[in-house]
Design a protein around this nucleic acid. Structure first.
Length: 273
DNA sequence: AGTCTTGTTCGACT
DNA sequence: CAGTCGAACAAGAC
């Protein structure tokens, strides 16, 4: 499940792949919905001939800035990018391929077909995404202001991309464990001390994820792999996520799994109150 | 072979 | 407007 650290890892690999200045010589759409609402023919026609200017990330989106348009790629659950040979047979779940002017092919594989490729004019603001938690903008006063005195559970708030961009189920559970806050705590009951701990824990768990090239939980095709096909190693560094029944690294109590806002949620019942 | 699980986004509803 | 809930998406595991 690519979240901010996994997407950041992919973006860094793409940045190191000598794509800047290369032209898109053509595109093939194997699963039309991936580029919806654009018609596949329109998408191909529009992107062909454009030059790659810049590769960046915003929240969980990979952004390829082209000379006219920007391509926003959201991998959702099982999306992956790979370079393949130009005459390769399609990957098992290949949905899109971009043919580059230097002969390489950037293939998009997505078992569950949930990922989306949005092609929008450069000047358009495509979506309201919240603050980037790894920038200097993410200050304690701003975080406090963002939280306000809402009467809502902290976990769903952190998963909402319009508040903070890039956190998903794994890193939210990890950040709440590190801050010793129960995922169902109402925001308005959080003390200043707890807010400070959470403000520190969010960038910490994300940086840690990036440092270990992301989290790859299993070995099947449903899991995260980088552009080079490499697994992340952050799964070995997790404290609570997918660790139900195992001891809490801090107090030794068994980690439990509950449901919060219809999401599997892992926590230590002693540390997180 | 049917049921469950999985995460994100969106739309309907309160 | 803010929050909650369920649907939809799709395939694989069991």
């Amino acid at each position: 499940m690519p979240e901010l650290p996994e997407v950041e890892t992919i973006v860094r690999e793409l940045q190191a792949s000598d794509l800047i200045g290369k032209k898109i010589a053509g595109a093939e759409i194997l699963w039309p919905k991936t580029v919806s609402p654009l018609d596949p023919l329109v998408f191909c026609k529009q992107i062909t001939g454009q030059t790659i200017k810049e590769i960046t990330r915003r929240g969980k989106y990979i952004i390829l800035r082209l000379n006219k348009d920007s391509l926003f790629i959201h991998l959702r659950m099982t999306g992956k990018l790979f370079f393949i040979g130009c005459h390769s047979t399609p990957l098992k779940h290949e949905r899109v391929r971009l043919i580059l002017s230097d002969g390489r092919v950037l293939a998009y594989d997505d078992q569950r077909k949930f990922g989306r490729w949005l092609l929008l004019p450069n000047e358009s603001n495509f979506k309201t995404l919240g603050i980037e938690p790894l920038t200097a903008e993410f200050t304690l006063p701003l975080f406090q202001q963002l939280l306000g005195d809402r009467n809502t559970q902290i976990k769903p708030f952190l998963l909402n991309q319009s508040h903070i961009a890039g956190m998903g189920n794994i890193y939210v559970d990890e950040a709440l464990w590190e801050a010793r806050i129960h995922p169902q705590r109402s925001i308005k009951t959080l003390s200043n001390k707890e807010i400070q701990r959470l403000h520190k824990a969010i960038p910490h768990v994300l940086e840690k994820g990036i440092a270990h090239q992301g989290t790859t939980l299993g070995s099947t095709q449903a899991n995260y792999f980088s552009v080079s096909g490499r697994r992340g190693t952050n799964q070995y560094k997790l404290n609570v996520f997918r660790r139900e029944g195992l001891p809490c690294p801090y107090c030794g109590e068994k980690i439990i799994k509950i449901r919060v806002a219809q999401r599997g949620t892992h926590l230590c019942p002693i540390c997180q109150i």
